[in-house]
Amino acid sequence: MSATRKLRVLPGFNLTLGYTLGYLSLIVLIPLAAIFLKTTTLTLERFWEVTTSPRVLASYRLSFGAALLAAVINTVFGFLLAWSLVRYRFFGKRIVDALVDLPFALPTAVAGIALSTVYSPKGWMGQLLSPLGIKVAYTPLGVLVALVFIGLPFVVRTVQPILEDLETELEEAAASLGAQRWVTFRTVIFPLVLPALLTGFALAFARAVGEYGSVIFIAGNIPLVSEITPLMIITHLEQYDYAGATAIAVVMLVASFTLLFVVNALQAWSTRRIGQDAGRNV
């Protein structure tokens, strides 16, 4: 940094960088390092055995599969919800807007119990679905429902401000140039919203992968069918197998980090493409 000495309005680059790194280490890196450290007490064979046992492998598939699917669903419907909230005025809009945040605020256990009650075969929704042969509670589908529930606000809240800033003039310009509605959406609106959508997707996914409280009640926790990876960690903990628990945690961490890194790279790429650094009045 000292090579390019610039006059800054707010001083303190060294201070802020030092503080940021110190804080990040204390809050994030040190606990994570402890997980890795604990894992190294295992032999490689034992590590492999723990992290690739059939139950654990099944839980990876469920956790990551359901989280990805939930993030995709949330990206689509979160975008629609954000669009309606930004573009239209309707009765009860403020209430709907406030409801979006509820999954943030609700204790996850409460959400889990509520969802499993509603979707159990005798619950309000379960009652309607079971004649159709659809079982939600205590199946992987239930896990998906819970993850969709908790991930929704992330997409809505990241996309909403971007949509609010999107000038309707752009759509009008496209229409006056003869573009059909779908073409306008695909070529004008979507590329500008894509970075925010990816961010929302990444956040919803990250939250869903790590989610425990709301899922555990509705999942039913049937081995090889509806056990999520966080539950496998807890199972190991309950048997005082701390190293086994951290071993699974390490696998989760690395996988999540890789996925998030890819999404972030995509997001950065799409941002660069729309020249977000540019002035707004373009």
């Binding site: 752009l170 310009a173 496209a174 006056s176 573009a179 004008v188 500008l192 729309i274 020249g275 373009v282």
Partner: peptide, 26 residues
């Protein structure tokens, strides 16, 4: 009708060329 806006309303994710070509490509 050709419409020109006060704040230009150019598509900022497209080059100048693509902006001008937009009406032809759609």
């Amino acid at each position: 009708v050709g419409f020109v806006f006060q704040h230009y309303a150019l598509f900022r994710h497209m080059t100048v060329f693509d902006n001008v070509a937009f009406g032809l490509r759609v």
